[in-house]
Design a protein around this nucleic acid. Structure first.
Lengths: 237, 237
DNA sequence: CCAAAAGTGTTGCTATTACACCCATGG
DNA sequence: CCATGGGTGTAATAGCAACACTTTTGG
C-alpha cells in the first residue's frame, strides 16, 4: 500500500464558538490568546486535532479539559477554512464548529469572555465587558463568526423545528414570551416587528403543542400585574 | 513562536463529486480506484491537499489535471469527515465538495464513469453502464454522497433561487419543461405529482421573469405537434 | 378542422397578517 | 374595579393546488 508520508500534510485545528443569550442579546464566547501568534488578541477557542481523535472528539476534549463543560452539547459543523495564509505559523486548516449553551455561566475560565453581538451597517461588532471588537479578531475568525451567525439564523428561520429550544434557560418551564425573546435575539433584534405577540403564541406555540414538541403543564408563578402566561415544557423524545 | 511540528498532523484530502442529469435522471461521476486501498472499488474522485494550495485549489487542480475540465465551475463545500478509521492507510480527513456540470461529456477520462442515482426503500443506489452500486463504495463515500444529494435537494427546494439553472444544457435557450425536468431529476422523481405543468409555468417561470433572472426571447423551433414552448435565457448579472 | 401540447384563467383552500376583543391577575 | 398584560377570535390578504379553458401549432 502507498506510503502516505511522501505527501506534505497541513496541520488541522478545530475552532469552536459557543452561542448563548445574555441580557436578551445573542452572545458569543471568545478568548484572549495567551501565546503567539496574535498574543493578546481575541479569537475563537481552538485546538489541534490529535492523531487518535475525530474532530468532534477534539471539540469534546476542548469543552471538558479547557472549558470544564461536561454537559452533552449538540455540535454543529459549520465550515472548513483552508486559505493559505490564514495562520502565520504555517499551513493550518480549521474545521469550525458551533454549539449553544442556555446558561452562559457554564463557561468558567476567566480567559473565556462573553461578547454581545450587534449588527452595524458594515458588519457585526462584539461588545464585551471592557472590550469592543469589530474586525480585530485573530486569524480569519471574524469571517468564521459571520458565517456562523448566518447559519444559526437559517436554522432558526425554519420555524417548525426545535433548534431554538437549545437557548431556553429552563426547558421545563418557559413561556411564549421566552421563546420569542430567543428568536428576536438570534435575529439581532431585526425581527421585532415581523411577528406580533398574539400570532406568535397562536401559530408557533400552539402548533408546537399540536406537534407534541411541547406541553402546557402549569401557570406561571408570577408577581406582576396581568394575566399569567401559559407555561410549557419540552417533551423529550 | 510555537513549533507546530510537535503536534501530530493528520493527512487531508479533498473529495469531489460531480452531479449532472443524464436521461432525465440525477447522476454522479465516480471512479474505479486503480491503486490500493479499495483497488477496483468505486469511490469519489479525490486528491491530497498540497502544501501550497487551498482546498478549492486542490479541487481545481483535480478538475484540470485529472479530469481535463477547464470550465469555471461553482464549487460547494459539503462537509468535512474526520472519523478515525475511514481510511485504512492511516489518519486521513476528507473535505468533500460537489459541483454541477450541465453536459456530462465534459468529463473525458475513461476511468470516470457516470451513475444514475435511484432511491430505494433502504437508501440510494447507483446504476452505471455495466455496474450496479449500493453500499459497495470505498471509504465512507456512500455516506458522503447521501449527504450531498440531500444538500443538493435543499438548495433546489428553495424555489426562488437560481441554483437549479446550473443543470440546464443551454442557458440561452430553455423552456419551462426543461427546468421542470431538472427539478424532477434532482428529487429523484418523487416530486412528479407535486407541481403540475400549468402551475409550474405560471408560478415559477413567470416569477423568475418578473425577478429578471430570465427573459423570454423566442419561440422554440419545433417539429412536433402542439403549441410551441416559450423559450427563455438566463440574464447574466 | 381536429388532435396535441402548451399557455392562461378560475376557483377554492390554507397559511399568514393585522388587529380587535376577551380574560385573569394585582393593587 | 380598573389597569395591565397575555390569550383568543375575526377579517382581509397572499400564495398555492386543482382543474378547466384557451391558444398555437402540425397533419
Amino acid at each position: 500500500m502507498e506510503d502516505l508520508n511522501k505527501y506534505p500534510h497541513p496541520f488541522v485545528t478545530v475552532d469552536l464558538f459557543i452561542f448563548s443569550i445574555i441580557n436578551d442579546k445573542l452572545s458569543v464566547c471568545l478568548s484572549k490568546r495567551e501565546t503567539p501568534p496574535f498574543k493578546d488578541v481575541y479569537s475563537l477557542i481552538g485546538t489541534f486535532i490529535h492523531e487518535d481523535e475525530s474532530a468532534e472528539g477534539a471539540i469534546c476534549r476542548l469543552l471538558e479539559e479547557k472549558l470544564g463543560v461536561t454537559n452533552d452539547l449538540v455540535l454543529n459543523q459549520l465550515q472548513t477554512f483552508t486559505s493559505l495564509h490564514r495562520d502565520p505559523r504555517g499551513r493550518v486548516i480549521s474545521i469550525s464548529y458551533y454549539t449553544i449553551v442556555s446558561n452562559p455561566d457554564l463557561i468558567k475560565p476567566s480567559w473565556a469572555e462573553w461578547f454581545n453581538i450587534e449588527e452595524t451597517s458594515i458588519g457585526l461588532k462584539f461588545i464585551g465587558k471592557n472590550t469592543f471588537l469589530e474586525d480585530n479578531l485573530g486569524f480569519d475568525h471574524a469571517k468564521i463568526i459571520n458565517a456562523g451567525v448566518k447559519q444559526l439564523q437559517e436554522k432558526v428561520e425554519n420555524s417548525y423545528n426545535t433548534f431554538s429550544f437549545q437557548f431556553l434557560k429552563d426547558k421545563n418551564a418557559f413561556t411564549a414570551f421566552d421563546l420569542q425573546t430567543v428568536i428576536n435575539a438570534v435575529f439581532l433584534g431585526k425581527k421585532n416587528e415581523l411577528l406580533n405577540r398574539g400570532n406568535f403564541k397562536k401559530y408557533i406555540l400552539n402548533r408546537y403543542e399540536e406537534l407534541k414538541y411541547i406541553e402546557k403543564y402549569d401557570k406561571e408563578v408570577k408577581n406582576t400585574k396581568g394575566r399569567p402566561k401559559d407555561v410549557y415544557r419540552i417533551i423529550e423524545r
